[in-house]
Amino acid sequence: MDTQLRRGMLDVCVLRSLTGGESYGYAIIKDISPYVTISESTLYPILKRLEGAGCLTVRSAEHNGRLRKYYCITDRGRERISDFLTEWEDIMRAYSFVKEGIK
């Protein structure tokens, strides 16, 4: 898959995993894994990029005697998801058009 496309899709999948409330690294991986292939090495730069873009906020909290980072989606993050969905409507229209031609 085109890297740019895959990257945009992964960003939105990570944001989607936060729409139900804040979450942490391993839980995000577990939530997304059934749908896309993701590992720590892929997730780390995504979280950093999304934080830099203001799409999520990070807080550290104590968990079983150690620190865990929790990520929380922001309004900008939600906007990113709706932009993605709008864009994909266009893509899906093009997809149907292309597919019909093949039949």
């Binding site: 942490y24 391993y26 991986i29 780390y44 620190l67 865990r68 980072k69």
Partner: peptide
């Protein structure tokens, strides 16, 4: 420091 902390957290969560 950031990456090592991130990976450590993930390993600990899996062990837990």
């Amino acid at each position: 420091q950031r990456l090592v902390a991130f990976v450590t957290e993930s390993i600990d969560d899996r062990i837990e």
